[in-house]
Design a protein around this nucleic acid. Structure first.
Lengths: 238, 238
DNA sequence: GGGTCTAAGATTGTATACAATACTGTGCGC
DNA sequence: GCGCACAGTATTGTATACAATCTTAGACCC
């Protein structure tokens, strides 16, 4: 089953044990835009749901806060992150800096097995869209980028890209234009083609324009700035 | 006091409160090569030293593990990370990808105040060397790179660079050639000059060659591979 | 009605206690 | 002497209890 996406696909195994399950579930929910930015994640609440103590909930939330999927506010709790317009731009600038070059490296290190995996991945994306599972499709399309970075065999950079893709899910949840359709199928197909041909220059170009496409499908006018909690600003310095 | 480097200089304020102090202290010690790679960081031990409970020690260690300064091994404890030769190469490849471009951006956003801060920083480095405080000099020279990335005003990328610089300290602790002297003064001075002139192209070039200089001062032959704990490999899958 | 203060409730932060797992050294068999 | 098994010790993982802080609702005053 090459396309089976288990819960652990989105987390680096820095922590094993009970908290990993929590991290994975929450991660997945956020990637699929089921948990929307701003949602409060209460410790007792999560503990009840997952039948674990607050200790492990806390561990999981801390983990997620380092992935910048969750924001911890002292004495106030954990909330699904709400990237600002500025942060959204930064994330895509960083992706534009890292991913095209990484795609080029991937093209040079491509194997038949990797190509097959990517194609299976695209098929899964397609299937999710057909089935009307938009959230799952979104998550898979992000994961496609992660797979490419893994082929490039640069763990460190792949880790950065993973973080950026994760935040991109939140950004899309907040700023995606209603009218623009998520039609990444062609872009992803073209990328796999270039990779399979070992054409690094082409892959680099394709990735660059693909990222630009995503960015232009976002509505990053300052107007839609997510709500700001005045208490965060007016609070006296600690 | 523009050059005052408080404890909190190296940590992102994701967590405040008691654990932040611990994170800062340990961070600093690692950056100064006082805590060497492989050192075990026992929870009780740290709790006794800092007069806090194991709960906050654990929080701090988890924080450090996400910065990849510390490695958590389940049921075995926390250890100062020992980057492998491969990881060392990756870190510098990532830095080569991010920092030159960032230096260019910094040149474009340079202010007089920022230039003064950088120069004061170099002076502090110099003073540390004069005083024979090699560890402090090492930490400051790493922090110089972080300062530049902050001037570029790209928080996300600056965060990545911060992580990379942190790991570089460990890499230097493990792989620095005895014979090659740490003479970054000229390179840093030249960089500040280029930045002050707003010469982005020059800054980019200087940063590129500066990073290459550091890399070539490392002894990354596979021979010096740090010790490996066989138990990590032979342990049956969980 | 609007605003401020206060007190109760809810939620998070920290410490401690107990459980689970890994490490260490001793004794036994060979 | 060498290797292995086992028990005791030490250390980490998890749950729970208590303290500190924030949030909310309502009374009271203007």
């Amino acid at each position: 089953m090459p396309t089976k996406n288990t819960l652990t696909d989105f987390i680096q195994p820095t922590l094993t044990g009970p908290s990993a399950r929590l991290v994975a579930s929450l991660s997945m929910a956020i990637h699929e835009n089921k948990l929307l930015p701003g949602t409060k994640l209460g410790e007792d609440e999560l503990g009840d749901i997952f039948k674990v103590s607050r200790t492990v909930v806390r561990t999981a939330l801390q983990e997620l806060s380092h992935a910048e999927l969750v924001e911890l506010k002292r004495n106030r709790g954990a909330f699904v992150s709400q990237p600002t317009v500025r942060e959204a731009r930064e994330v895509f600038e960083a992706r534009a800096l890292l991913e095209p070059r990484t795609a080029r490296s991937a093209a040079e290190r491509m194997t038949e097995e990797a190509a097959a995996r990517l194609e299976a991945h695209i098929a899964a994306e397609h299937a999710a869209i057909e089935a009307g599972e938009a959230g799952k499709a979104l998550r898979l399309s992000g994961h496609f980028h992660i797979e490419i970075s893994r082929i490039a065999d640069q763990t460190t950079i792949a880790g950065f890209i993973e973080r950026l893709v994760a935040r991109s899910s939140l950004i899309i949840a907040l700023y995606w234009k209603r009218q623009s359709a998520l039609c990444e199928k062609h872009a992803h197909h073209a990328l796999v083609d270039a990779l399979r041909r070992g054409d690094g220059a082409d892959a680099e170009e394709l990735m660059k324009s693909h990222l630009l496409d995503i960015l232009t499908a976002l509505d990053l006018r300052e107007v839609v700035q997510p709500p700001i909690d005045l208490k965060d600003i007016l609070r006296p310095a600690p």
